[in-house]
Design a protein around this nucleic acid. Structure first.
Length: 110
DNA sequence: CGCTAAAGACGTCATATGAT
DNA sequence: ATCATATGACGTCTTTAGCG
């Protein structure tokens, strides 16, 4: 169940669907040449290609990061569980020690 | 066997956090 | 302010254990 609404991929998620690429013919007064901004050099095709490439790189990196993150978390939990076991043992030992000392103290002749 | 619920692993997205 | 990385939340697929 659940259904988070946004659904598979993009749509509402806003992850740059090769959007806002104005064609060069947009609204420039004729004769006016865009002063070579590096952005303006690429064709729309190149831009989408670039966006796709960037997205793939980002997904790959995040995939790896997620794996590492999970591994790290698992180790952390294992560590905590280990610590719990150690502390439980210490506790047991101390309780035992206390019992023994009490015993000695209670049966001590005046 | 096949079935099913629970647990585990994974990929993706959104967001927090730290570095520049 | 912008970018890169880490992490929580979610949905999906896979594996495992128990039952009839």
């Amino acid at each position: 169940m659940a259904v988070t609404g946004e659904e598979t991929e993009s749509a509402a998620t806003g992850d740059m669907p090769a959007y806002q690429m104005r064609s060069t013919s947009s609204g420039l007064p004729q004769g006016m040449v865009m002063s070579a901004s590096p952005r303006a050099i690429h064709s729309p095709e190149q831009q989408t290609e670039e966006a796709t490439r960037k997205r793939e790189v980002r997904l790959l990196k995040n995939r790896q990061a997620a794996r590492e993150c999970r591994q790290k978390k698992k180790e952390y939990v294992k560590c905590l569980e280990n610590r719990v076991a150690v502390l439980e043992n210490q506790n047991k030992t101390l309780i035992e020690e206390l019992r023994a000392l009490r015993d000695i103290y209670c049966h001590k002749p005046e």
